[in-house]
Write a protein that binds this DNA or RNA. Structure first.
Lengths: 211, 211
DNA sequence: GTCTATATATAGATAGAC
DNA sequence: GTCTATCTATATATAGAC
C-alpha cells in the first residue's frame, strides 16, 4: 500500500477494514486523552506515545497542538451536522433525537468539559463554537416548538427557552459533576446523565409513555 | 510605585480595616485569576505579578502551587460551612438560602469550572471535595424535604433526588455555558444563572409568590 | 512518513543575600 | 518578609537524516 498522499481517499472498493491511517490514529487517541484528562493537561508527548509514534512524526501530521485541536473540533462539527440532519418530523421520535445529541456530546465531552482551555489553545475555533451552538439551539427550539404544536409538550414560550438552556447545561456538564469524585466515567454513567436530562422535561410532557 | 512597605505589622489594636497581609492578598488575587482563567492555566508568575510581589516571595508564603490551591479550597470549605449554618428553619426562606449557595459557588466558581485540574494539582483536596459535596447534598435534601413537608413543594422523593442533582449541575456549570462565547462574565449573568436554577423548581412549587 | 536530535520557552521550585 | 539569581523539568516546535 504505497500511499504517497497526505490525504488518502477513503473510497476504497474492497472493505479493507483495518489499517487506519496514522493521522486517524492520532485523532482517535487524542480525542480519548482529551476526554479523560482534559485538553489542557494532555501533552503532545503523551499523544505520540499513545498513538505508537514519535513526537517528530506527530509534528509532521499536526505541526502544532492547535492544529490537532482544530482537527478534533472539525470532527465534532461534522458529526453534529450529521445528527442535526436526522431531526425527526414526528415529535414522537423526540427521545431518540435527544439521545443522539447526548451520545455525541459524550463522545466529544472534552469540548464541553474544557471549553475554555480549548479556545485558549486554538483561538480559531472560538467563532466556530459560537456558530455551532447558536445553530444547534435554534434547531432544538424548532424541534420542541413542533412538540408543543403537536400537543406533546405543554409549556410557555419563555419557559421553553429556559428549559432548553437547562437541558443544554445538564447535557454538557453532568460528566464534570460525576467526575469530581475521582473515578472514571463508564457507559452506565451515560444512562444516568440521560435520565437527568429527561427529568427536566417530565413536568411538561403531556404523554410520557404513550404505550 | 514608590511604595516603601518594608514590613507592615498586621497585629494592630484598632481595627485598621485595610493593609491586608501579603498572604491574604495572594489568596485574593489567586482566586480571582483561578476564576477567570482556570486553575490549570494560571502560573505562579502571574499570581506573583498580580499580587505585586516577586516569585520568590510567593514561594515563601506558598512553597508550591498545590499549597496555594489547598489554601484556596480551605477558604471555600470555611465559607460553605458558614452558609450551611444559616440554613433556614422556615421553608419560606428557601429562596434566600438558595441564593446564598449560589453566590458562594459564584465566588469559588473555579472549583467547579476546573474541578479536575484542581485535584490534579492538589491531590490532597480530592477526598475533601467528596466530603464537602456529600454533606452539602445531604443538607439540601433536608431543606427540600422540609419544604415538601410544609406543603410548599409537591414532588415525589425519587424525583426530588434527581431535581437536586440537576440544580447542583446547573448551579455549578451555568458559567461555563455562558463563558464559551468568549466574553467575560458579569454580575448580570449571575442573575441569569440564578433564574435558570429557580426555573428547575417552578413546576413543583405550590406557591411561587406568597404575596 | 517516520525517525533522531536539538532548540526554545515556560513553569515550578530552590538557595541565599538583604 | 522580600528580593535576585539559578536550577530542573517539561512542553512545544524545528531541522534534517533515513
Amino acid at each position: 500500500m504505497a500511499r504517497s498522499r497526505g490525504h488518502q481517499s477513503p473510497d476504497e472498493e474492497v472493505a479493507a477494514p483495518e489499517a487506519p491511517s496514522t493521522r486517524e490514529r492520532i485523532l482517535a487517541v487524542s480525542l480519548a486523552l482529551f476526554n479523560t484528562r482534559g485538553l489542557g493537561r494532555v501533552t503532545t508527548a503523551e499523544i505520540a506515545a499513545a498513538a505508537g509514534i514519535r513526537e517528530g512524526n506527530l509534528q509532521y501530521h499536526f505541526p502544532r497542538k492547535s492544529s490537532l485541536v482544530e482537527a478534533m473540533f472539525a470532527g465534532f462539527e461534522a458529526e453534529a451536522a450529521a445528527v442535526a440532519g436526522r431531526m425527526p418530523a414526528d415529535p414522537g421520535a423526540l427521545l431518540a433525537y435527544q439521545r443522539a445529541w447526548f451520545d455525541l456530546i459524550w463522545r466529544y465531552r472534552c469540548v464541553y468539559r474544557d471549553g475554555i482551555a480549548m479556545v485558549e489553545i486554538a483561538p480559531a475555533v472560538r467563532p466556530r463554537v459560537h456558530t455551532l451552538r447558536a445553530r444547534t439551539q435554534e434547531l432544538a427550539r424548532a424541534v420542541f416548538d413542533a412538540a408543543v404544536a403537536a400537543g406533546r409538550l405543554r409549556i410557555e414560550p419563555e419557559a421553553l427557552g429556559r428549559l432548553i438552556d437547562n437541558a443544554w447545561i445538564v447535557s454538557s456538564h453532568w460528566m464534570s459533576h460525576r467526575l469530581q469524585g475521582g473515578t472514571e466515567l463508564t457507559e452506565a454513567d451515560l444512562d444516568w446523565g440521560f435520565a437527568q436530562v429527561r427529568d427536566l422535561f417530565v413536568p411538561y410532557l403531556v404523554a410520557l409513555q404513550p404505550e
